[in-house]
Amino acid sequence: MIGLKRIFVTLAMALGLTFGLTFAAHAIAPGEALNDPQLETRARALSAELRCLVCQNQSIDDSDADLARDLRQLVRGRLQAGETDDEIRTAVVARYGEFVLFRPQFGGHTFLLWMTPLIILLLGGFWAHRLLRNPPSKPVE
């Protein structure tokens, strides 16, 4: 199943399809969900942020791989034990590395990633300011 997914994704890329159509993905199986709706909502939100490490760009919430299921159970177990979202993230990162997070933590190595939108907006604002302040430019020969 996982092999097939790979083949498919490679093919889709070879095709230049815009869509990373992965093999029909449905993750959560009957009985997996927690009874407490609030905890379950948190579990889904957390699962959507965690990468399935053996899949092609899928979260553990979308994947039916064994590893993804184990991780889903781990997340739900820790939620039931009363841990906070951040504690669970930290625990998962400690085990699998930062690669597992689909939303990287802010830090030196991700500074540009998080700051680019702001930098562009500031540069744009600065440029607009100059454009509007300066007298109309004359042709230069």
Binding site: F99, R103, T110
Partner: peptide, 9 residues
């Protein structure tokens, strides 16, 4: 390092 940038980002 290896990081992931996905839908949540």
């Amino acid at each position: 390092g290896k990081i992931s940038v996905g839908a949540p980002y």
